[in-house]
Simulated scan of single mutants.
Amino acid sequence: MFEHSIKPGDVCLDLAQGRPVHVVTDTGQTVAEWSEENNYNLLDNYGNSRFGAAGDDRVFDVVYCSNLKSKPSKTYAYPESRLGRIESEAADVGRQVANRVVVAVLEELFERAAKDDDGAVTVLERYATDVEYADEAAEARELAEIDRIIGEV
């Protein structure tokens, strides 16, 4: 079983209703912070309290994805404890969608930086090696370098 945290782009189950949801954004807030800012206590919500939501849980905006005909009309703020990640990426070597997107974007940036200004590669490497995405940045840098070498042949 993979141990990934929830990220935007993930499909999860709303554990309270058993329905699939698509994670749209990480609000960057805890339940306590979100509740104070929005004047609504997420801990008082019956669906959230059933799953042990705590004040320090991260909050995500999600939309329900019930069927092909339904069009999401609004987002819902759910604590992480209410969401169960569907590990569909297990069939694809365990890489989360968000990480795949990070590698693709960084690879393109490294390629463009190398074409435009070699000094830009150094700057990009420094800022792209965020602790959470250091492995993805290294992979993207390597892929961009391989593309450059193949292009020169």
Rank of each mutant, 00 (worst) to 15 (best):
V24E: 11
E37I: 09
T129F: 04
V11P: 04
E152W: 02
T129K: 08
F110A: 11
R58F: 07
S73G: 14
R148P: 06
D130H: 14
L143E: 08
S35K: 00
W34R: 01
R112M: 12
S81N: 12
P79T: 06
D10M: 05
A104F: 02
R19S: 00
I6S: 02
I6L: 13
Y46K: 05
E108L: 10
V63H: 01
P20D: 00
E142P: 01
N45D: 11
E80D: 07
A104Y: 12
T27Y: 07
A144T: 15
S35W: 00
I6D: 01
E145D: 08
F110I: 10
S5N: 05
G52Y: 04
D135S: 09
E145L: 15
V102P: 01
V121A: 09
D135M: 07
V121C: 05
V105N: 07
S70H: 01
N38F: 05
D92H: 04
F110Y: 15
L42D: 00
E132Q: 15
N41L: 04
A114T: 13
L13W: 02
G119C: 06
E111A: 14
E152N: 05
S88D: 10
G9E: 13
T27D: 14
T25Y: 06
V21F: 00
K7F: 10
D57F: 11
Y40Q: 07
V24Q: 03
M1W: 06
R85H: 14
E145G: 03
T75M: 10
G55H: 06
N67S: 15
T25W: 04
L124E: 09
D26C: 12
M1A: 10
A104E: 12
D56I: 03
D130I: 05
I86E: 01
A77M: 04
R85P: 14
N48D: 08
V21I: 02
C12T: 01
T122L: 11
G52M: 09
G47Q: 05
N48G: 04
V21D: 00
F2D: 09
V123F: 05
K71V: 15
E87N: 12
L68E: 15
R100A: 15
R100P: 05
E136H: 09
E152S: 11
I149D: 04
V123W: 10
Y133H: 10
R148V: 03
A91I: 02
A113P: 00
K71T: 14
V131R: 13
P8K: 02
D135F: 11
V63N: 00
F60Y: 15
K74C: 03
G84H: 02
L15K: 13
A134T: 14
N48Q: 02
P20F: 00
A113Y: 01
V131C: 03
G28W: 11
G52F: 14
A113W: 00
A140S: 15
Y46D: 12
